[in-house]
Each structure stands twice: as structure tokens, then as C-alpha cells.
């Protein structure tokens, strides 16, 4: 029987005894499999079984289905399914609303990711020491992370309300004029990006803080001996040391931004005039509205998936090239 290391002698003896009692079954393959599944190693299959089954049914099969569905036309209940070939893809690349949604998603990503990746790093450097005030700042910055997008949307929508918004009023009394934050084809995308950053800035900052705290202290001491000031220490010691965290945040943030949905749904729902309609927002409305077309929605999902994967793989290879 399988024994882990050499330290399980008593249990080994026990299994040996059982074997002798069942000498007849010795050659029986089913018996041996069952025996193995009860052993220390074999039981691993029971332990991973639930997660593997769930991940296959609810992650891997849906991914395969989405690639399959992309070539079909189907309604929401799959009663009417017909082969579409490449028609859905042709439709997507001539669908102005889809192309616009890709543009909006890219603009949003270009606004959000640099601030999340670089801004959070700078702020984290300022609050990485474990002083009382720094801990308080960290606790506060993390606060929006635990709030639901629903609440955050309700809150910002009213604070930036064009008539009775508290912030709109404050800006107006400073003489900046009445700003229509949620109904301006140029401005609103910035507002949405701001709210999204407001919501998750805390995670990026805290992850950086953890990384900065793990930097070897002697590196700073050496830099200090060389007469480096705090800023130089950050550039030459901290920044290079936390590079893995930088890549990690960059990749997760990019993938997250390319899938932006919650905040847009709660604030603008794509408006005004589709200037904040992200790809996922558009996919959602095509898949789950009255005129549901699951096939076409899948096609757009597949295109988005390819974009996200391409970005991730390119970055991953850059990371490996740089770290090597």
C-alpha cells in the first residue's frame, strides 16, 4: 500500500492485516482501486472532486459553450437555434455600437489603469511605515472596497447630481459654474473612471504597502549610507524591489478594467449617447434584454476574451523577459 514517507509503520501493518483477510480479492481491480481511494494519497481525489466538478461545469464548459455559441443564432431559452457561421463576427465588426463599446472600454482602461498602478504605488510609499496615522489612512482608503457598487453608484449619482448635488453645488459656489457630470458626452467617461478608481484604489494601495513592507531593510540602510534621499531611495530601492507586485497589479487591473460593468450600470447605464457604454455593458444588454440574442452576445464575449488574453499574454511575456 502507499505509504507517506517512512513514518506510517503502524498504519502499514494494519492495512497488511486487512489484506490477509481478503486474500481472495487480491487480484480484484475494483477492490484495489477502492483500497487506494481510502489511502492517504488516493483519498486526494475525493478532496479535489467537488472543486473540479464545479469548475468544469461552471467555468470551463461555459467557456467552451461561448466559443461554440458564437457561431449560432439563439434566443434566451435556446428553443430556436440556427447555425450562423461567421455571420455574427461579420455583424460585430460592422456593428457601430460594438466598435464604440470597444473604444469606450479602451479609453476607460487608459484612464483607470495608470492611476491604479502608478498612483497607488506612490501613495503606498507614503503610508507604508506602521505609524498610527498611516494605519488610519490605510483603513480609510480601503473603506470603499467593502461597499457594494450599488451603494457607491447611488451615492455618487446624487453627490454629483446636476441640480441638487452636494459636490456640484460646492464647485458652483467656488465659481466653477454648473457642471453636468452625468450628461456630458466628453466629461462623463472621466466621471465614471473616477468613481471606479475611487472604489478600488484601496486594494491596489494596500497590496503595494504589503510589498513595500517586505523590502529588505538593509537595502535602505545601504542607500542611506550612499547619501540617497527618500525620493532617490524610492526610485532606486523600493521601485525595483516591488516589481513583481507592479506586474501583478497591472495585469489584474487591466483585465478588470476591460470588463468594467457594475459602476457604469449603476451610474450612466452607457449614456449619454453611448459615450460610456463599455463592451460588457453592451453584451449584457444584448444578451438579457427583451430582444435577447445569445449567439451574438457570445460572439462579442469571445472577441473580448481574445482581447483580454492577448493583453495578458503580451504583458506576461514582457514580465518574464524583464525579470529574467
Amino acid at each position: 500500500m502507499q505509504v507517506r514517507g517512512g513514518c506510517c509503520l503502524p498504519s502499514n501493518i494494519k492495512t497488511g492485516a486487512v489484506m490477509n483477510n481478503n486474500v481472495m480479492d487480491k487480484g480484484n481491480i475494483i477492490y484495489r482501486i477502492r483500497k487506494y481511494l481510502r489511502s492517504a494519497e488516493g483519498s486526494a481525489y475525493y478532496f479535489i472532486l467537488p472543486s473540479i466538478v464545479l469548475l468544469i461545469i461552471f467555468s470551463i464548459i461555459p467557456l467552451i459553450v461561448s466559443f461554440y455559441m458564437a457561431f449560432f443564432n439563439a434566443n434566451m431559452t435556446l428553443d430556436q437555434v440556427s447555425f450562423a457561421g461567421l455571420d455574427n463576427f461579420k455583424q460585430a465588426f460592422s456593428d457601430k455600437r460594438f466598435l464604440n463599446s470597444l473604444k469606450v472600454t479602451l479609453i476607460f482602461t487608459a484612464l483607470e489603469v495608470p492611476i491604479q498602478v502608478l498612483g497607488a504605488m506612490a501613495i503606498a510609499a507614503l503610508i507604508s511605515k506602521n505609524t498610527y496615522t498611516n494605519k488610519l489612512f490605510r483603513a480609510i482608503y480601503f473603506l470603499p472596497v467593502i461597499c457594494s457598487a450599488t451603494s457607491i453608484g447611488i451615492m455618487w449619482k446624487m453627490i454629483l447630481h446636476s441640480n441638487v448635488g452636494f459636490f456640484t453645488y460646492a464647485l458652483q459656489s467656488m465659481g466653477l459654474g454648473k457642471i453636468n457630470f452625468f450628461n456630458d458626452t466628453h466629461l462623463t467617461i472621466f466621471v465614471v473612471a473616477f468613481i471606479s478608481i475611487w472604489r478600488s484604489f484601496g486594494i491596489s494601495a494596500i497590496v503595494y504597502v504589503t510589498a513595500i513592507q517586505n523590502v529588505n531593510n538593509s537595502l535602505y540602510e545601504a542607500a542611506e549610507m550612499d547619501g540617497a534621499n527618500k525620493l532617490e531611495q524610492f526610485i532606486h530601492v523600493t521601485a525595483p524591489s516591488i516589481r513583481p507586485t507592479f506586474w501583478y497589479i497591472l495585469m489584474t487591473r487591466l483585465a478588470g478594467s476591460l470588463q468594467i460593468f457594475d459602476i457604469i450600470f449603476m451610474t450612466t447605464d452607457g449614456g449619454p449617447n453611448y459615450t460610456t457604454e463599455s463592451t460588457v455593458t453592451y453584451i449584457y444588454s444584448r444578451a438579457f434584454s427583451s430582444s435577447a440574442s445569445m449567439g451574438y452576445a457570445s460572439t462579442m464575449s469571445v472577441i473580448l476574451f481574445v482581447i483580454i488574453m492577448t493583453v495578458t499574454v503580451v504583458l506576461y511575456r514582457r514580465m518574464n523577459a524583464e525579470e529574467a
Partner: peptide, 26 residues
């Protein structure tokens, strides 16, 4: 099995939401 598990981390929820709905529906 472990790589299969990790690979699912790379599948964005928003991308599979349509077929996931269909799976749950079926």
C-alpha cells in the same frame, strides 16, 4: 488538475456570463 484549476482564474466572469446563464437555465 492543479493547472486546470489555475487556468479557470484566467477565465473572466463577464466573458462567460452568457453561457453560464444557459448552463444554469438548462
Amino acid at each position: 488538475f492543479f493547472i486546470l484549476t489555475l487556468a479557470t482564474m484566467m477565465i473572466p466572469f463577464q466573458v462567460i456570463m452568457v453561457p453560464l446563464f444557459l448552463v444554469v437555465y438548462k
